[in-house]
């Protein structure tokens, strides 16, 4: 029970370390860093490596943005099996739709309630 927390913490933390290194060492912008992590998750799933990582680390692998890339590939491949090539297109947002819809919904709610400002 406790070990899953530890592995989640370490794996999730390591993914964030990669992101921080992309910022600080490679001097990439936040948008570039985000895209690289999403693409990395997508490629890893294509190679069949991301699901074993989720089995091992749980939320440590599903919470970071790499999981979004994983979900994109996962949905595309699952639909492709059922419907062929067209499934790649229809399946891509199958799994990720909840995440995208939530982002729009909660973004809307936050923008109605709050005014944006710089953070110190």
């Amino acid at each position: 029970m406790v070990s899953i927390f530890i592995t989640a913490f370490i794996v999730g933390g390591l993914i964030c370390v990669v992101g921080q290194l992309l910022f600080d060492v490679a001097k990439l912008t936040p948008a570039h860093t985000l895209c690289i992590l999403v693409v990395a998750g997508s490629v890893l799933d294509g190679l069949g490596l991301y699901e074993p990582l989720i089995d091992f680390a749980g939320a440590g692998a599903t919470i970071p943005i790499t999981s979004f890339g994983n979900a994109l590939t996962h949905g595309a491949m699952a639909e492709a099996e059922k419907h062929g090539l067209i499934g790649v297109v229809t399946g891509m947002f199958e799994v990720t739709s909840s995440g995208i819809s939530s982002a729009i919904l909660f973004g809307f709610i936050a923008s109605v309630i709050f005014k944006s400002k710089g953070k110190v």
Partner: peptide
Amino acid sequence: HNAVERQFRYPNEYGAQKPETAQWT
């Protein structure tokens, strides 16, 4: 601050991390 930051850097909502060399408008 808000008007300048969102024009030259990132949207204020984005909350982008800044390096040590960055300055505050």
